[in-house]
Design a protein around this nucleic acid. Structure first.
Lengths: 343, 343
DNA sequence: CGAGGCTGATTAAGCGGTTAATCAAAAGGG
DNA sequence: CCCTTTTGATTAACCGCTTAATCAGCCTCG
């Protein structure tokens, strides 16, 4: 591998001049004549010179890499369309800006993210954090060290924190209003635990819509794993029949799928006996049987936005909106039925 | 951020000694007394010293990062369980070895990978290439520059190349033999294009099994995208009825799902009228309707193996098996029916 | 015609580590 | 008691690149 010194020597010029030319002479005030410039280009080409990003990073402080952190271990890539889509969006934007991504996730069994010390790495310019939990040691460490970061799906208490979210409240109310409009009056919500930031807005939207309609709410706690929906729904249906819902608003599409399995397992049908609305509306929703009516989040767009904000922050550009809330919508498919529900 | 010089000064010792101590004094021949050692640790702790990986990488040449390259752009993360699982496996192993991952993929519309110059990056120690195509400019560049790499799902002509594959031939024959055992005699194979390396073995296994049974083969070319299976199957069923298969071996689970849609669209049933076998057996297979019988590849294991080999290569450890072929199996579910097929 | 300004460079000091070469003092050996 | 070895360190070069500071000519202008 040839160095910039080789190029300079080969072109008969100083390294400073070579450096200036090969960087488009942006910040430096070094002047180079067109003839010299040409010679440097030719030398670089002839030696197939590639700058050493490590050395450049050391010298400039800019590394051109952002860290992307997911909160949970192992199977998350394959299991969770949400993470996949975030990644897609982040990747697009990062690539457009000619940056790269360093990937992190927890490797244990829990929801612990990796050690802050491992994340706040000298090799990266900033962190993109997908953080469902409200309190995180990583965020604390970032703030203490003044390390650039943007949080995704994180419910910030501080208005200065950069965070990208979808309109969870609206998502919850959209789903619920749809079910109400279909005539349902006993609508349950399979809700993720408190510590998942996004669960709050969804639940609040659900409760608001019911209150507006003068209907009672019925929140059933659910674990986030794949089987959470199944378990929660089974328990609900094992309870007294007069408390059985005619409709269910699930915390996610995966959760909805589990709920549908539970409903079927009890010999009931979807949507005929019980209507189901999912959340996320990834490609998973179209694949389920029946196809899920689901609240659409612009997940890839959220990833893109977060990456854009982080890079702006890193490069010292102003960040106009520090806590954008992206719009959601409702995709109607088959899991609620087209007609009104039983009274 | 404090540097090693700060630590040394604070401990009243030279940087060389500090460096030796903080690195466990592996390679260097520097001796340090326990008392001094202790003082250095304390100083580092007090200053919350974190080594700068950039500087270390520059000095040692070891960066602790491997590049992971996927061949196709945009939606791949969410769309393709294969990539997700490879990633999961790679991640596990890389994290275990205390390394990190830098992520790459093509960003255009085609199957071009990124420019070799962008991939062979001074910031990484080696490349993990998921390369369906037999000839790749990236591999050529790696070989020319003697840059460490391991290929996944790549059909190497050179026995020196490090490559991890599943037993595609066996996968093809397993699927086909299963269908033959169920009594099928007209078995089609929806096969990916020539340029996809893994398609060859699958097809060869399929053809071998049929030849052994004295049955004719029936290869239908399919595109790799999500709709490829649908289109191929539709064309097949639009053809003369006496050439309609009673069973189909699809190139992937996604392909199988498309084929099933096409079969249903023509008013036929799966598995009653036409049996279908998929390939990959990711979680997608269990979700499809009917649940897919599918050839299981140890995809995450392949990723893990490849990462292990790459890190061994980077660290100069001997790589015992240069081209491991991982075993496959058949997962029987509902898409082939339990009983014999119509004669 | 000398001062000042512009052009086209060079020199050298970092960035934060690692490591080969060197060295002073204490310990060990004959 | 003197010479050699060991112990416990230090010094300084280097990894490849950036950039502030400096400088030699040449041009222009009052």
């Amino acid at each position: 591998m040839s160095t910039i010194r080789d190029v300079a020597k080969s072109a008969g010029i100083s390294v400073a001049a070579a450096s200036a030319v090969l960087n488009g002479n942006g910040s430096g005030r070094i002047r180079v004549s067109p003839a010299t410039r040409q010679r440097i280009y030719e030398a670089a080409e002839a030696l197939s010179y590639r700058p050493n990003h490590l050395a450049r990073g050391l010298a400039t402080g800019r590394k051109g890499i952002v860290g992307l952190v997911f909160p949970y271990p192992g199977g998350f890539f394959g299991q969770d369309p949400f993470c996949s889509l975030v990644m897609t969006g982040v990747f697009e934007e990062v690539a457009r800006e000619k940056h790269n991504i360093m990937l992190h996730t927890a490797t244990g069994d829990g929801w612990n993210t990796a050690e802050p010390d491992d994340l706040i790495d000298s090799r990266i310019d900033g962190l993109l954090l997908v953080l469902p939990m409200p309190e995180s040691p990583v965020i604390a460490a970032c703030r203490r060290l003044d390390f650039p970061y943007v949080a995704l799906a994180y419910n910030p208490t501080d208005p200065e924190v950069l965070a990208v979210n979808a309109d969870e409240f609206r998502g919850g109310s959209l789903a619920t209003e749809h079910l109400i409009a279909l005539g349902h009056r006993r609508i349950a919500h399979l809700s993720w635990p408190e510590y998942i930031a996004t669960s709050h807005g969804r639940r609040a939207g659900y409760e608001w819509a019911l209150r507006e309609a003068g209907l009672p709410s019925m929140v059933v706690p659910t674990e986030v794993d794949r089987e959470g929906g199944y378990r929660a729904m089974s328990e609900l249906l094992d309870g007294p029949a007069d408390r059985h819902p005619t409709a269910v608003f699930a915390a996610s599409d995966l959760c909805a799928e589990g709920a549908i399995r539970a409903i079927r397992h009890q010999g009931r049908r979807v949507p005929d006996d019980i209507a189901v609305v999912g959340y996320d509306d990834t490609w998973f929703a179209g694949l389920a049987q029946p196809k899920l009516t689901s609240v659409r989040m612009p997940i890839a767009e959220m990833g893109r936005t977060a990456a854009e904000m982080l890079i702006a922050l890193i490069e010292g550009r102003p960040v106009v909106e520090r806590q954008p809330i992206l719009p959601v919508s409702l995709t109607v498919r088959d899991s609620c039925g087209a007609t009104a529900a039983p009274a």
